[in-house]
Simulated scan of single mutants.
Amino acid sequence: MSHIVVAGSINVDVFLDVTALPKANETIIGKAMRQAIGGKGLNQAVACAKLGPPAHMVAAVGDDALAPQATAFLAQNGVLTDYVKGMPGATTGLANILVAEDGQNMIVVTPGANGLLSPGDIDAASSLIASASALVVQLEVPLATVRRALDVARQHGVLTVLNPAPVDPAAMELMRLADLVTPNETELMRLTGISDVSDASLITGLNALIAAGAKQALVTLGSEGCAALMDGALVRLPAYKVKAVDATGAGDIFNGALVTRLVAGDGLLEAMRYGCAASALSVTKPSANACPTPAEVAELMAQQPQIAL
């Protein structure tokens, strides 16, 4: 049976609910605190496991009390953890997340064990990656580790999906190893120098990623949906209409859902449509661990047929 490998981060997410996000140097009073298991890699792996074929993580946790919570959460959500490594003396990654009433968020990540995941750990999982249908990577682990994972996958003809988040301009060197790169609008601006999300700017930015070596490029646009270059033309998909509660992890759900459809044989446009639906449903629930079921995604897609613009 085919499988997907996600090489990336595992974090414990500490959420602070606030009325509105603070401005620079402003002190505010929070409304509530809650904790969840997250990290861009974990979120994407859970989405893959819930919506598609078996998903494995190549990742690292610390040797603290939070590590078994994280690995148990992965197992409970169907993600295989044989290559999740415990790092002696390290803490499990931590994300502090402010969530406003309108669903917008601000996130500060302390890498912990994520920063210790090495190219050697990728080599130890090379047979797993080589036999995968797709490899998904992000940038919450060292760049050299991401590069090695992409190298191994590319050597074996495995579909490579690079989600360049959190953004690092040095990631432009990885484009040559990416079959598909999936930034959000802010990441696309930082990577390519565009200043807005007009059609002309998006075309310029996405073309820059392709000129750097990516085979295909798309951009997620939050409440404005997503867009991609197809046969040289920009194609936009509008967002599904839902009531947002918490946008944390929506981009990760999009990426996981997208990949499940690509490995199932869908074209990029149909996979993007599915990712939009899954991510829209995720923002209707609190926390980053709000991936919908396949039935829920199918129902929303039937209720709101999307028309490409």
Rank of each mutant, 00 (worst) to 15 (best):
C226G: 10
G193V: 10
R236C: 06
P142N: 05
V5G: 11
N43L: 08
L177Q: 13
C276M: 07
A72D: 15
G112E: 02
S201W: 12
S131R: 12
V283R: 07
A125L: 11
A59L: 08
Y83P: 02
D13G: 14
E101F: 04
V263R: 00
A149V: 07
A60Q: 04
H3A: 06
K23C: 04
R273Q: 15
S282T: 05
T260Q: 01
D102I: 07
L42Q: 11
I307Y: 05
P68G: 08
V259R: 04
L139Y: 10
V99T: 04
A55Q: 12
K243C: 01
G78W: 15
Y83V: 07
A49E: 03
A217R: 03
A60G: 00
S279I: 05
V283I: 15
L135T: 08
V79N: 09
P53S: 11
M230L: 15
S279R: 09
V197N: 13
C48I: 12
D17E: 15
D64R: 01
V297G: 10
L218E: 09
L16S: 12
E187G: 03
Q304M: 13
A308V: 12
C276L: 13
H56S: 13
G112C: 07
R236F: 07
S195G: 01
V108W: 08
Q76V: 02
V46E: 13
L162H: 12
A250I: 00
S133Q: 14
D121K: 00
Q306D: 10
N184Q: 13
G265E: 06
S287Y: 08
E224P: 00
A144T: 12
S2C: 00
M272V: 05
T192C: 04
P164D: 12
M33D: 11
S201Y: 13
V136W: 09
V136Y: 02
V242T: 08
A24F: 08
V263Y: 00
M172V: 10
L174C: 01
G93H: 07
A280F: 07
M175T: 03
V46F: 07
I107G: 14
A208L: 09
M230C: 15
V99S: 08
L74T: 12
L188E: 05
G157P: 10
A278V: 11
L309R: 14
I4A: 00
N255F: 00
T110G: 12
D123V: 13
I253A: 10
A134W: 05
A60M: 00
G115K: 06
A60F: 00
I203G: 09
V283C: 12
G78H: 10
T92V: 10
S287D: 14
D121T: 05
Y274T: 10
L98R: 01
G275H: 04
G30M: 06
K243S: 13
R273A: 15
E270Q: 15
T186H: 11
L262W: 06
T186E: 01
G120Q: 12
P238L: 14
N207E: 15
Q44G: 04
D151Y: 08
T27H: 06
A113Y: 08
D102H: 01
L309K: 11
G193D: 06
N163R: 04
L202D: 01
A60D: 05
G251H: 04
G78D: 02
V58P: 02
C276K: 00
T71R: 05
A200Y: 00
A59F: 02
S9N: 12
S9F: 09
G103H: 08
L268T: 14
I210P: 03
A47W: 02
E26N: 11
A250R: 02
D17N: 11
V263T: 09
A130T: 13
T293N: 05
T160L: 04
K50H: 14
